[in-house]
Design a protein around this nucleic acid. Structure first.
Lengths: 150, 150
DNA sequence: TAGATATACTTTGATTATCAAAATATTTGA
DNA sequence: TCAAATATTTTGATAATCAAAGTATATCTA
């Protein structure tokens, strides 16, 4: 393997694993020690502003609605999420974050922005463009080669 | 949130999720449809060349040895891994990849190098350096701020 | 407009991944 | 020699996941 490829691969794998580990331990130690990474991502997918249906959120998370049902059961019990039936169409359930859920969302958001700030610290504008370009190329490659467009 | 931060954050999250999804579906569709992502990572951690102990591999994967035992049971049953007792110290079990395991390892390795090649396609040497620099900064930040050094 | 079909969600039953703690086998040290 | 330490496996529990079956409601068609 070419040296640069090896360096970049190692970096990407490390970053990947570190982020997973950090999300776990940061949650365990922090204010929301009763949330798993999966639960945090569910909260992220529900989002801050509009109530969303079970189907929408399950699609975003790429899990079945059945799986989401059990996840939401737990998040409701823990006080992060609220469920309500839609009166216009009583088959539909909308879920939204409680105050506590929104707080968790914001803290997780900050975790993300802190990371990005660290990544771009000391880069000038041209450097930033190159970073965006290379990551875009990777993202496009992944979507093209693996037909990930929804 | 600053625009650049938002763009980079979105890119990173997308790449993160896409890679997870791709690993899953690529495995399912490919030659090794009986391997989960977790199992593939276990194969990766065992490595191509030297037999390794249960404790070593569990440490690398950041899982308990008990969890690894059940994972290895399945991989042995499926023919990817071999176990052997060490004669000098009969408490120790060394695990190594079978021929089939090594083939899986190489295919997964190629998946990684293909991705990296896509990421750096069209970049010149200075661009590459900036990419390495920014990813290194991110990696260092993660390790420093979260005490991840083993 | 009644009955069939479709839709949105929940429940059920099964599997995988995980941990902590107990159990087993072996080695080392006093 | 036997107590303590080490390496692994087993056990019992929980979370995350899916497919398929079940429930409630809405829509379409004859």
């Amino acid at each position: 393997m070419k040296k640069l490829t090896k360096v970049l691969n190692t970096l990407m794998v490390e970053i990947f694993n570190d982020i997973l580990t950090i999300e776990q331990t940061a949650l365990k130690k922090g204010h929301f020690s009763d949330l798993s990474v999966t639960e945090m991502h569910t909260i992220e997918a529900i989002g801050m502003y509009h109530p969303r249906t079970m189907s929408e959120v399950a699609l975003d998370l790429k899990i079945t609605v059945g799986t989401l049902t059990t996840a939401i059961n737990r998040l409701v019990k823990k006080g992060y999420v609220e469920r309500k039936r839609v009166e216009d169409d009583r088959r539909v359930v909308k879920i939204q974050l409680t105050k506590k859920g929104k707080l968790a969302y914001r803290i997780h958001e900050k975790f993300h922005t802190d990371m990005i700030h660290a990544m771009i610290e000391g880069l000038n504008v041209e450097d930033e463009e190159i970073l965006v370009k290379s990551l875009s190329q990777l993202s496009n490659y992944l979507k093209k080669h693996y037909h990930l467009n929804e």
